[in-house]
């Protein structure tokens, strides 16, 4: 084994361990701040895996988007919602945990089994390294033009929707009749519909 190959293997093992242990920690730790920071670590390690695969553009995008934006946003959300609240204990939580754990383990073993029985296209397409950025740009403006343009509509609509949902003011006057909004649609909504009060 050459030095290059063994260095790559060692890097892969370290990054893989960080990803696996980090994500287990994200799920199992009870302090949400630790979970958020561990998640950042996992994202960084995934970016490292991309670098090992010679996909530097994807690695940079991963760091910018996930660590730079998503993870920071999560931390901000935690900071803003700093409220201690005693949650009601859920009945049969232990049983649920065991059940979901069993399902996840079953899925994992299925994936591992399929992984070993599938004839993969090895060694796969050759990485084009530094040309990747140029090639991605070319694809974005040719065969992936439609999803690329649609993504802008998606982002515009998500932005408008977020503003609409976060905005405090709601209309209190009917535009047409100038009366105060008559609330029966909403007021009646407060009471549970499943209990039928009118029946004897």
């Amino acid at each position: 084994m050459t030095i290059a190959a063994s260095t790559e293997l060692i890097c892969f093992l370290i990054l893989g361990a960080v990803v696996v242990l980090g994500s287990i920690g994200v799920v199992l730790l009870t302090n949400i701040v630790y979970s958020a920071f561990l998640l950042g670590g996992v994202f960084m390690a995934v970016a490292g895996l991309y670098l090992l695969l010679n996909a530097s553009f994807v690695a940079a995008a991963q760091v910018l988007v996930y660590v730079g934006a998503v993870n920071v946003l999560i931390l901000f959300a935690i900071m803003l919602v700093n409220k201690k609240e005693e949650l009601k204990p859920i009945k049969g939580l232990q049983l649920r945990k065991i059940l979901s754990g069993a399902i996840c383990l079953g899925l994992l073993s299925l994936l591992i089994r399929v992984d070993f029985t599938t004839p993969w296209n090895l060694p796969g397409p050759k990485a084009i390294g530094e040309d990747a950025t140029e090639r991605i740009g070319e694809h974005l403006f040719t065969d992936y033009l439609l999803p690329f343009e649609l993504a802008s509509v998606l982002l515009l609509m998500a932005m408008i929707g977020a503003i609409v949902l976060a905005r405090r003011d709601v209309l209190i006057q009917d535009l047409d009749t100038e009366k105060a909004i008559d609330l029966p649609i909403i007021e009646n909504g407060k009471e549970p519909l499943l209990i039928d009060k009118t029946s004897p």
């Binding site: 609509m157 709601v170 209309l171």
Partner: peptide
């Protein structure tokens, strides 16, 4: 939408 006091323009856009 009007009777429940929701803005109409954004509703149509979404």
């Amino acid at each position: 939408a009007e009777q429940s006091g929701s803005p109409v323009g954004e509703y149509a856009a979404i």
